[in-house]
Computed example of a mutant assay.
Amino acid sequence: MALRKQFILAASVMVALMMIGSSTSQMDDLDLTVLSRKARYALFPDSSTMGLYLAVAVPLEDASYDVSVSWNFEATYQLPSNYTELILPFVLASASRSERQFNRRSAYRIVEKRFKSYGLKGRECLLRTICEAAESPLLHNGLFGDILHIIFTPSSSADENLHPVYSAAEERGRSGKDCRSSYPRCPVGLLDTIAPFED
């Protein structure tokens, strides 16, 4: 019985090999041409965008409500829908470094616009914030405190040819002068809205 199974298995293998051999000889008769094409890239449908979103929320101290104040920052970028829109290495070669770079001047312009969008005096409130950041440094308040310190301390970076009022506001805060009375047209300080962390 075992011999019969071995014979059937051997016969099946031989038939399979003959079929493979006949099919490859038929393929040799065909004229095979190698097709090639350029590499393809995945693009996006028309009007596609990608967004980065950052929200900083500060809870308000009220036991009866669960309310927080939030600042939202959003950046939206158009995605390419056509191969001709791609520029490798994805930066504009014609733009100079100063045009591509995010610096303190552009950060202050954004902060001033944000204050104005809330109906406040943009420049005046920015100067008060710089003064308050110098008056009470935020160095030991984690990553968020470090970021605020870097942004609102003009002397923390190389000279960027900023208007002298920014340095004057920082010096006013360092010398202990009252920032609220120095900038009376700004009723609210940005740093007043952040509750201090206590152990």
Rank of each mutant, 00 (worst) to 15 (best):
R104N: 02
Y41W: 12
P89F: 10
A168H: 10
Y53D: 07
V15P: 01
M19I: 15
T24Q: 12
T33K: 13
E135C: 10
Q101S: 05
M1A: 11
V13C: 05
S156C: 01
V165I: 15
S167M: 12
L9S: 14
M14Y: 05
G122K: 06
R172W: 12
R174D: 04
A133I: 07
R40H: 09
M50F: 08
M1L: 12
D28H: 11
S106H: 03
V111Y: 05
Y41L: 15
S175H: 13
Q101T: 15
G119K: 08
A133R: 02
R123A: 10
A10S: 09
N82E: 13
V111D: 01
S167H: 07
K177C: 07
N82T: 15
L139M: 09
I87H: 03
G21P: 09
E135K: 14
G21E: 10
V13Q: 00
I147C: 02
A2N: 10
H149W: 09
T153Q: 05
D66L: 11
F73V: 15
P80S: 04
L17G: 13
E170D: 01
D31C: 12
D146E: 07
Y183F: 15
L143C: 01
G122H: 10
S94W: 06
K121M: 11
P164W: 05
M19S: 13
K121F: 11
I130H: 00
P154K: 03
N141I: 01
L52H: 01
A55M: 13
V188H: 04
V13L: 06
L32C: 15
L127H: 02
S94D: 12
A10Y: 11
K38E: 11
R114H: 13
E198R: 10
S70P: 00
L120T: 09
E112S: 07
R123N: 12
R185N: 11
D159F: 08
P59H: 00
R109M: 09
S25V: 14
A2Y: 11
L60Q: 02
K5A: 14
R4H: 12
R104K: 04
L86Q: 00
K38Y: 09
D46M: 05
V69A: 02
P80E: 01
L79V: 00
L54A: 09
F90M: 11
I130E: 00
L138S: 08
V111A: 08
R100M: 08
M1R: 07
M18E: 03
Q26P: 08
L139Q: 05
R128Y: 07
R114S: 14
L86S: 00
D62Y: 03
L30H: 11
I8K: 10
R180F: 03
M27T: 12
P164Q: 04
Y41R: 15
S36L: 09
H163L: 14
V91G: 00
G173C: 06
I130L: 03
T76V: 15
G173R: 06
L92F: 08
K113L: 13
D28V: 14
T33F: 06
S157L: 10
G122C: 12
L17K: 01
S68Y: 05
F90T: 10
S106N: 04
K121P: 15
S96V: 12
H140R: 10
A75P: 01
R100H: 02
